[in-house]
Structure formats: structure tokens, C-alpha cells
């Protein structure tokens, strides 16, 4: 018998291998999809009311608390997150408080006029650009909209772009 020849036994073994592979693959697809599907869901865009314009004295950064109803998987809950608001003439700047390094909340340090992160000592200038520490990029910005006397910010942060503030 030449080595290339396929015996009946070899054929059966290969058949079992192929069928086993097919069964594994077809059962793996739904299982992997089942496990990962909520991870792929995009976040919905929302406009969140953070207070009246009068609550934010102009010239410096004031803490804005974004509170909204969110659907967290099966769980309906209130979510709170922070942003920093500066009213500057007729322009309103909203800086996301989420550190671009590992996501801690940055605070506005009035003494040094910088944003500082308590976790790994990142420092940002008043524009949100990185001065010191590990953050890889500037603080994100939030879109702002005024409805009557209320300030609304968008829930989806957008990356900071030089000279193209919102």
C-alpha cells in the first residue's frame, strides 16, 4: 500500500474530524454572539440639562453634574457624570471631566488654574490640553446647546481640536 493511499480507517478518522469541526464551529458562532452582543451596542446620544445659565458665574470653570436616566443592560438607572462649564461672554465651554488616561474624574484647581487628575497626577491647562503626566491627549469637549435659560450638554464627548471649540 502506497503512503498516499487513503485507507478506510483514515477516511473515517478524517470524516469524524471534519464533522467535529463543523459541529464546533456552528455551535461556537451563536455562543460567541450571545456572549458579546451587548458589548457592541452603541451608546445613544442624549441632551442633558445641567442647570440654568445663572448657576454658572462667568469667567471660571464650574462643576456641571450630568444626571440622566439610562438603560444599563436590563437595569434602568440614573447615571451621574461630571463636566466642567465655563461661561465666557456669549461662548460656553463644556469640558468632559473624564481623564483621557484611565478615566478618573479631573477637578479644576482654582489656585494653579489647571485641571488635575487625582489618580495618576495628570495636569491639563484651562483649554484641556495636557501639561504633565500620563494622559495621551487633551480632555474631550461636550457640545453645548441653550434652550431658554437652561444649558444642555450632549452625552457623547467629542475629541478636542485646536481652535475648533464648541
Amino acid at each position: 500500500m502506497s503512503p498516499k493511499e487513503i485507507t478506510r480507517r483514515k477516511f473515517m478518522e478524517m470524516g469524524i474530524g471534519v464533522m467535529g469541526g463543523f459541529i464546533s464551529a456552528t455551535s461556537a458562532i451563536p455562543i460567541i454572539g450571545f456572549i458579546t452582543s451587548p458589548s457592541l451596542k452603541r451608546e445613544e446620544e442624549k441632551w442633558i440639562d445641567i442647570g440654568a445659565i445663572n448657576d454658572f458665574p462667568p469667567g471660571t470653570y464650574i462643576k456641571g453634574i450630568m444626571e440622566s436616566q439610562v438603560k444599563d443592560g436590563w437595569y434602568l438607572t440614573k447615571e451621574r457624570s461630571l463636566c466642567w462649564i465655563k461661561v465666557d461672554g456669549d461662548k460656553i465651554i463644556a469640558v468632559s471631566a473624564t481623564c483621557t488616561h484611565l478615566g478618573c474624574n479631573v477637578y479644576w484647581d482654582e489656585a494653579s488654574k489647571n485641571f488635575k487628575c487625582p489618580c495618576h497626577a495628570g495636569v491639563y491647562d484651562p483649554e484641556g490640553k495636557v501639561i504633565k503626566g500620563p494622559p495621551p491627549r487633551a480632555l474631550d469637549r461636550l457640545q453645548v446647546k441653550i434652550e431658554g435659560e437652561r444649558i444642555l450638554v450632549n452625552s457623547i464627548p467629542i475629541p478636542y481640536k485646536e481652535g475648533k471649540n464648541v
Binding site: 451587548p38 458589548s39 451596542k41 452603541r42 451608546e43 439610562v70 444599563d72 443592560g73 436590563w74 437595569y75 438607572t77 447615571e79
Partner: peptide, 9 residues
């Protein structure tokens, strides 16, 4: 995280 944020999932 089972989503973009830390939560129930």
C-alpha cells in the same frame, strides 16, 4: 465591560 460603560452587565 459588556458595553461602553461599567454597569449591571
Amino acid at each position: 465591560r459588556g458595553g461602553s460603560k461599567i454597569g449591571a452587565l
